[in-house]
Simulated scan of single mutants.
Amino acid sequence: MASRLNDIQKEAEATKEAHSHQLLEFQSQAQENHTVIHAQLSELVDYIHRGRADKKGEMSGSRGPQQPAATQITGSAVTPTFEQRVQIAQRRLVQTVINADAATRESQEAAERDRERRRKEAQSLKRRRRD
């Protein structure tokens, strides 16, 4: 009976240790996710502020090309490090926002050109009717 109790106690300790390890891994991953999200949000805020400065006629600074972080080589494939994956995700997110902004701007410009064309046609018709 005592040996069975010791076995159960050892098993409970092992389970507790495993859960503790899993909790630490979860906390670590949560912190990494928080860092990624924070970095992406910072990039978006920077982009938005640059856009406002451009609209006001101010020159916006560019960070220029960034140096790639070290890579991990696994077998014959090159696997990006966590930092590189974060940078890739940030670039994709910012590029998506830039592309959406450009598409919106192009659509607005096309609508403005169309309004101007219609206005000129209406003026031309009025002149013809008067003559």
Rank of each mutant, 00 (worst) to 15 (best):
M59W: 08
F26W: 02
Q31W: 06
D54Q: 04
L41M: 04
L23Q: 02
A70N: 12
M59G: 03
P68H: 12
P65I: 08
L41W: 00
R50S: 04
H38D: 09
E32H: 06
A69Q: 13
G75T: 07
Q67P: 04
G75E: 03
H38M: 11
Q66K: 09
Q31L: 13
G57H: 04
P65M: 05
L23K: 11
S60F: 05
G75Q: 03
Q29R: 14
D54A: 10
Q66T: 09
I48S: 08
G64S: 12
N33K: 05
R50A: 04
S60N: 11
K56A: 03
G64P: 00
L41S: 13
T35D: 01
G61E: 11
L24I: 08
G61I: 02
G64A: 11
E43H: 07
L24Y: 04
N33G: 06
E32R: 07
Q29M: 07
Y47N: 05
Q31N: 13
Q72S: 11
V36I: 09
G61V: 05
A70H: 03
R50F: 04
I48Q: 13
A53F: 06
S28Y: 13
A69I: 12
K55R: 15
N33D: 11
R50D: 01
I48G: 09
H38W: 11
Q72D: 00
I48T: 02
A70D: 01
M59F: 03
S42K: 06
G51Y: 06
G57W: 06
R52D: 05
L41C: 07
Q67S: 15
A53Q: 14
E43F: 04
E43L: 01
R52C: 13
R52K: 08
Q27G: 01
A69K: 10
R63C: 06
D54W: 02
G61N: 10
P68W: 15
R63K: 06
E25S: 14
D54M: 13
P68V: 15
A53L: 05
Q40E: 03
E43P: 04
S42Q: 14
I37V: 04
H34P: 02
Q66H: 05
D46A: 08
T71H: 15
S28N: 14
E25H: 15
T71L: 10
Q40M: 02
P68Q: 15
Y47C: 00
E25D: 15
S62I: 11
Q67A: 15
A30Q: 10
T71A: 13
R52H: 09
S60A: 04
S42D: 07
F26N: 01
L44T: 09
H49V: 10
L41H: 05
L41I: 13
H34V: 14
Q29D: 06
T74I: 14
E43A: 11
H34Q: 14
H34A: 15
D46F: 00
A70K: 01
R50N: 02
Y47V: 02
R52N: 08
I37H: 02
Q72L: 07
D54P: 05
F26K: 00
A30H: 11
H34M: 15
Q27A: 03
A53H: 00
G57C: 01
Q40D: 01
L24P: 08
